[in-house]
Each structure stands twice: as structure tokens, then as C-alpha cells.
Simulated scan of single mutants.
Amino acid sequence: MNTANRITLARIALIPLFMLSFTQWPAWLADNNEFIRFLNNYGLYIAVGIFALASGTDKLDGYVARKYNQVTNLGKLLDPLADKLLISVALIMMVQADMVASWAAVVIIGREFVITGLRMIASAQGIALAADRLGKWKMVLQVAAIIAVLLGNVPFQWFTSVRVDSVLMLLAVMMTLFSGLHYLIQNFKMLNLNDM
């Protein structure tokens, strides 16, 4: 297994650590365990760090794969899967913690299901649908919005009364919808749906 794929797998491996850190454990468990008490007090900040680190590896594995000619079919499968898992897990846990509206999570996760379905249909027909620039901007906005919401609008609250975290999440949802529709329109015509 090459270095680029190892970086992608490390991103996937960070997801359970994010979940462990993000979870607010029951008081009876925290009372009897120093580590759980530490997680209840500081776990959210650790979760933000893990999420930011995992998100950063998305660019790193792509750079390594291209620079050292390590582009593989496994990498093409794992890289988008890792992104979708990371974003989806973060949003689901944030909805459970009442930090994000459920409709926003449904839009973002639903878009990924639709685009993945389109790519699977295309792949079955021997067509490779590449990610586009809007999809990359969508990912950047989603990551920025999730980090801002996890931090509770810090540091923006020190400079403005505007809920920048909420604005970023709204922009992420809008970009998710726009990029999804653009991707569908651009690529749907390439498919031969009569064969299905």
C-alpha cells in the first residue's frame, strides 16, 4: 500500500477518535473515570482538532498521489469515501447535540448519496466522472462551517454580533445544493439510461 492511501486510511481512522472525543458521556461514568471526565470537559476542543487534522489530510493525500505518481483505483475509491464519512459523521453527531438543524444535515448528506449514485451508474457504463472545482469549494465551505459551529462561533463573536457560524453553515448548504445540481446537469447527459 502506498503513502497516499495510508494517509487516506489515517483520515478514516480519525473518525472514531472524533466520535469518542465529541460524545458527552453520562455523569455517572464521568464520576468514576478520570479520562471520561477529561473528555466531558475538553473533548469538544479535541474533536475540533481531530476534525481539522482529518480534513487537512484530504489535500495531503491528493498532493502525494499526484506528486509521486501514486494514483490508484483503491485511492480513487477511498478518498471520496473518507470525505463523505467524515462530513456525515460530524453532521449527524452535531444534529444529535442540537448544534445543527437536521434539514441542513439531510441536504448535505443527501447530496452525497445522489452524486455517489450517479457515479456508480456512470462507472457501470465505463464512464469516469471526475470531481469538479465547485465540489472542492463545497468541501472547503462544509469544513469551515462545521469547525465554526463546533467552536460555538469563536472567535467571530469577539468581533461581531453576527452568527458567522450560522452564516457559514447556510452558505455550505447553498453551495452543496448548487454544486450538486451543476454536477448533475453537467454529467447526466453522458449516461445511457436506456441500458438500465
Rank of each mutant, 00 (worst) to 15 (best):
T8I: 04
G152H: 03
K59H: 13
G75L: 03
N5L: 00
N2G: 11
A131F: 06
G180R: 01
N73H: 13
I109N: 02
M93Q: 12
W25K: 01
K138L: 02
N32C: 08
K138V: 01
L78K: 00
Q70F: 04
N73C: 03
E112W: 09
A130D: 12
V154Q: 13
A54S: 12
A97Y: 02
K189R: 15
D195N: 14
L191V: 00
M190P: 02
K136M: 05
P80G: 07
T116R: 05
L29A: 12
V100L: 02
M93C: 13
Q142Y: 04
D83W: 08
L118M: 14
T8S: 14
V71M: 09
W158Y: 15
I185K: 14
N5H: 03
I15V: 15
G180D: 00
P26M: 04
T160G: 05
A10T: 15
D83K: 05
D58L: 08
L77G: 10
Y68G: 09
V143A: 11
A144K: 01
W103S: 10
F156D: 08
I50A: 03
F51M: 05
L53M: 13
A54C: 07
L77E: 11
G152C: 07
S161I: 12
T116S: 14
M174R: 08
V100G: 01
S161F: 11
N194R: 14
P80Q: 05
N194T: 15
I121H: 02
V114R: 06
M175C: 13
V114D: 00
N194F: 12
M19F: 11
A128D: 12
V48H: 01
N33T: 10
L118T: 06
D195H: 12
Y68L: 13
M120L: 15
V167M: 09
I50L: 12
P155F: 03
N69M: 09
M196E: 08
S179P: 14
I15D: 01
I7A: 05
A4K: 00
F18V: 09
L60A: 13
N32R: 13
K84M: 07
K59G: 15
F35M: 14
Y45V: 11
L181G: 15
F18A: 09
F188G: 09
L118D: 06
R66N: 05
N69P: 07
T57C: 05
L134D: 10
A172H: 08
L14I: 11
I109Q: 03
F188H: 10
P155I: 01
D61K: 05
N33D: 15
F18C: 08
N194C: 10
F22R: 02
A131E: 04
P155T: 02
I92G: 00
K138I: 00
A30H: 10
Q142D: 01
L150A: 09
T160R: 04
V89M: 09
F188V: 11
R37Y: 13
T176N: 07
P26Q: 03
D61W: 00
T23C: 11
K138P: 10
N5F: 04
L85Y: 06
V48M: 08
N73P: 13
L129N: 09
D98R: 11
A90K: 02
I121K: 06
L168S: 04
V164M: 09
L141E: 07
L184R: 07
V167H: 01
